[in-house]
Nucleic acid binder design. Structure first.
Lengths: 120, 120
DNA sequence: AAAACATATTCCGCAATAGGAATATCGTAT
DNA sequence: ATACGATATTCCTATTGCGGAATATGTTTT
């Protein structure tokens, strides 16, 4: 995987926020909207951008689309995602997103949303 | 320093090559031209881009401009530069650049070029 | 002062990207 | 079949970035 392609994905704040929360686990679009508090079109387009470059993978689950980090990421991608997680730990917005993500994940079992149903 | 700003600097191959060789030490523009084998205007503009965002610092030395990595970089910048060095170790072009950089540095004492004269 | 050298900047055209509004698509429920 | 929910895509505009040619600026040498 090309390094430049990876960095292109990382040079937008919304995409950084998406990748940051994905570090905790898979998520569907409606929960991204809730956690990042951004309009659907914005989330959806950035997810499409990341998907086109292999930074996330998708699986359809009913009418939901569940996004996750790729199962087997390249060395470069893993290194940079780790670096991002590290840097994000100091930023208020990233921390708030991560906290919201934890809350969403905590209540997921009670919903019929399939975000955590499968891991394939 | 803003993470997005850093990633914006990293999403161009020429700038990655510049930052990669700068990991070995300061360098003036004419040596960048030699090592990267790219036209002067291209090198110069990318250096201006990096300087405007604080990823490099400059010092005039006669008619030369000596560029270097900033003395006290932020945590995010240091982390990402380290990550870059790590990833670059596997890419043929980055490796070739690094090898050329070593050769240039080895012969620097015999030239009147000021790349290594001072470290301030 | 003029020439030579090192580097920066301007001007141009082009491609990529972001954001939002509106609309389309696809799956599910009634 | 229809309506609804979740998500994707299209159309638009504005901004940014890249590359190269030409030119400008600043410094040293003659």
């Amino acid at each position: 995987m090309d390094l430049v392609r990876i960095y292109e994905c990382l040079c937008d704040r919304t995409r950084l926020r998406i990748l940051n929360v994905l570090g905790q686990g898979p998520l569907c679009v409606c929960h991204f909207q809730e956690i990042l508090d951004e309009p659907q079109v914005k989330i959806s387009k950035h997810l499409a951008y990341l998907k086109a470059r292999g930074l996330v993978s998708v699986r359809r689950e009913g009418s939901w689309m569940v996004y996750r980090l790729p199962a087997k990421a390249s060395r470069e991608l893993r290194a940079n995602l780790a670096c991002l997680q590290d840097c994000a730990a100091e930023d208020p917005v990233f921390r708030r997103d991560a906290a919201r993500m934890r809350k969403v994940r905590a209540r997921l079992p009670g919903e019929n949303c399939p975000c955590e149903v499968r891991t394939c």
